[in-house]
Nucleic acid binder design. Sequence first.
DNA 1: GCCTTTCTCTACCATTTGGTAGAGAAAGGT
DNA 2: ACCTTTCTCTACCAAATGGTAGAGAAAGGC
Lengths: 199, 199
Amino acid sequence: MARRTRQNILDVAGNLFGHRGFDAVSLDQIAAEVGVAKQTLLYWFASKDELIQEVLSETAIELTLVIEAAIRSAPDDPLDRMEAVVKAVFRPAVRRPSLLGLVREISRLPSESSERLTDSLRPLVERAVSWMRTEMDAGRLRRADPALIVALAYATVTGIATEPEALRVVGWNADIVGLRRLRDELIGFLRAALAPVSD
Amino acid sequence: MARRTRQNILDVAGNLFGHRGFDAVSLDQIAAEVGVAKQTLLYWFASKDELIQEVLSETAIELTLVIEAAIRSAPDDPLDRMEAVVKAVFRPAVRRPSLLGLVREISRLPSESSERLTDSLRPLVERAVSWMRTEMDAGRLRRADPALIVALAYATVTGIATEPEALRVVGWNADIVGLRRLRDELIGFLRAALAPVSD
DNA sequence: GCCTTTCTCTACCATTTGGTAGAGAAAGGT
DNA sequence: ACCTTTCTCTACCAAATGGTAGAGAAAGGC
C-alpha cells in the first residue's frame, strides 16, 4: 500500500532539487515535506545520490515519452513540427515548473550516473539533429548548424527553468506573464530565425 | 600588501560559486584553494553570505561597465548594435567561463541582497527594452515583445553558462566547439529572428 | 493464530558546516 | 625603539548533515 510513499518522496524530492539544487536540499527537509521520517527515505533509496538519480531518470523518461509522442503526431511542415515539439517540452514544465530545473543538476552527479542519463537523451538529440539537417538540405529550413541550434534551444529552456526569480532580474514577472507566453515568444523566435529564405 | 589576498579570495570564490553553486562550496574549500586559513576568509568577509554578495556585485559592476562601453562605441544599425552587445557580454565569460554561472546564484541569496543586485541591473535592462521598442516602431527591427526578447536572451546566456557539462547532454563538446562559436550562432539567430520584414 | 514480508519509526553517530575567541606575526608611522 | 594597524594563524564550538542499527507496526498468505 505504502508504495505511494515512494512516489511521494520522488515527487517532493524532484520539486525541491529542481527548485533549490541538489546540495541545498537536505534529506531532513524532504522527509519533513513528505511528512515522513528521514529513515523512511533511506529505506526506499539507499542514499541521497541514489534518490536524485532515480528522480532524474524518471524525469528523463517522462520527457522522452512526451517528446516522442509529439513527434509521432506532429504535422509535416518543419516549422509546425518544431512548434509541436517545443510545446511538448513545455507541457510538463508548465504544469510542474521545477521539472526542467532538474536537468541542471545532471552535471553535479557522479560522472558515471551523469553519463548514463546523457546516453538516455542522446538518441533523441541525434534524431533531432539529423532531421533538421535533412530539412535544411531540402531547403525547408534556413541553413545553420543543427547541433548548435539544439544546444541553444536546450540552453534557453534550461535557462528559463533555472528559476523564475532569476528572470526577474530582467524584469520578467512570472505571475503576470507566465511561462506560456515566454514559450510562445520562443516559438515565434524559432520560426523567424529558421524560416527558409525565399530567394 | 596582503590586500591582494582579498582579491584572490574573491576570484577563487567567484569561480567556485559560479561553477558548483553557492551551497555546494564550503568556506574550507575556498580557503584551501586560495592557500590560506578559513579564518582569513572570515577576517575579510564577515560571513559566507557577505562573500558571495561581494563577488556578485563585483561581477555585476564588471558586466555593466563592459556592456555600457560596448553600447557607447557601437554602430548605429540595430542588428550590428545587438551583435556588439552580445559579444561584449560574452567577452568576460569566454575568458572566465564560470562568471555567468554566478548570475544563477542570485536567486539563492537572501531576498534583500538579491533585490539590491536586481536593482543595479535594472537600468541596463530598461534601456535595452526601450531602445528595442523605438527601433521596432521605426521599422528597423521586426516587431515583437522587447521585454520577452531580453528575457529569452538572458535565459539563453545563463543556460549556456549553467555548465558546459549540461550542454554535453545535447552533444555539445566545449573543448571542440567552444563558447565563441556558440556565441556566433546565437548572434546569427538573433539577426535572422529580428531582421525587419521587407514588405 | 502465526509467520514472513513490507514498511516506518526512535535513537544514535561521525563528519562537515559556518562561525567565534583570541593570540601572534608583519609592517609602517613616529 | 615603540606602538598601532593590518593581517593570518591555531584551537574550538554548536548545529546540521548523510547515514547506521535495530526495534516495532501493518498486512497478507497459510
